[in-house]
Design a protein around this nucleic acid. Structure first.
Lengths: 202, 202
DNA sequence: ACGTCGGTTGACTGACCAGTCAATCGCCAG
DNA sequence: CTGGCGATTGACTGGTCAGTCAACCGACGT
């Protein structure tokens, strides 16, 4: 039975620490924050972080893998549908942008500290990251085979351009290089898919 | 007069340290390398680094600003020419890709440690980075006004998509997510401009 | 009452490293 | 020869933290 007073079992405490870590990493950055900052933010003792995680790195690893696997599943699911590649890319861009809309801090951490920090953490997770590029590349490749997309652009390049464009827009929002109000998220989806897909259409 | 023996004046020593820093940052990353690594790589004493630079940060700042200003000038120069926007974007993409071809280590450091590390150094140089986006955005905006590009895509988004696509391809090369042999650099230029510009053309 | 055991605490340690500084070198001018 | 001065050296210091660990808490079963 759960304790009546706190209503928190072990799994929930772990979650509380992870959620606190997202806020701290987003605010201060992984390298510049201290483990004690995470503990303070979560309202737990320093040592408890090490009860649930082997190291500071493992906290970030966990956050990244949790979310990234959800995204990979989403891409696979979209690719399995019997729709135009253009619609698939729309759905994928939509999923990523919605992820940001739903939890900007988490996406900021994943992009800034893992995806775009390929020297430190990206290196560890390079295979997982590349998997996403490959899945998107496969969507493009099939669309070329079916005649929907032009065939003179390498699917891998197209995937990179597509994903890079999305991530750059998110990064622009994250660091206020790109106004976030104008048009909003749905407008952004349209623009990215419009730009990239029109370039790929036959 | 220059010393006959070493043929190195103060400015050259400074350069030697900067070049060594590029190699060390590219190999180990800014955060994980020690200042002594830079000194060793340059073949000078630890303290000399602090004779020429106020701090470890200043070494990276210098490398970034040197190169970034060259790029901003190049973009301005291209934009001043009386050619189609498509040709301008081709020239800009070409310049960035050639920068990588000419000095992959330096571009790796700038992208990985500054441009894509907006939490740490990017924050300091955000204004400089944003300047590049704005210059590209201006190219697109003028092309829309002249009727060359469609007008239903915000110039700022287009600039982000364009720059993001290039940077992602470079990142792919840097970390071997994208094969570097196939087609080569000129092929890459064509593909990026083809993909983005065809999406922007009326 | 009492023992057990997972969860929880936070002071402490050991390692690391940016930046300092006093000493030394070697070129040149007088 | 000598004094000055910028360039160069590298041992040392001070502060920072990740990770450890021994002690403590409190729920629950017996």
């Amino acid at each position: 039975m759960a304790t009546a007073r706190s209503a928190q079992n072990a799994a929930e405490k772990r979650r509380i620490i992870l959620d606190a870590a997202v806020r701290v990493f987003a605010r201060q950055g992984f390298h510049t924050c201290r483990v004690s900052d995470i503990a303070d933010e979560a309202g737990v003792a320093y040592g408890l972080v090490y009860h649930y995680f082997r190291s500071k790195d493992e906290v970030l690893d966990t956050l990244f893998l949790e979310r990234w696997n959800v995204m990979l599943d989403a891409i696979r699911e979209v690719d399995g549908q019997d729709i135009l590649a253009r619609k698939k890319l729309e759905a994928i861009a939509g999923f990523i942008i919605d992820s940001y809309r739903h939890d900007p801090d988490l996406m900021k951490v994943i992009i800034v500290e893992v995806t775009r920090a390929a020297n430190s953490f990206g290196q560890t997770h390079l295979a997982k990251i590349t998997e996403a590029y490959n899945l998107i590349g496969a969507v493009v490749e099939k669309a070329q085979a079916s005649g929907e997309f032009r065939t003179d652009i390498s699917p891998q390049f197209a995937a990179m351009a597509f994903y890079g464009a999305i991530e750059q827009v998110l990064t622009g929002w994250i660091f206020d290089s790109l106004p976030q109000s104008a048009g909003g998220f749905d407008e952004a989806k349209r623009l990215i898919v419009e730009t990239i897909c029109s370039g790929l259409d036959r």
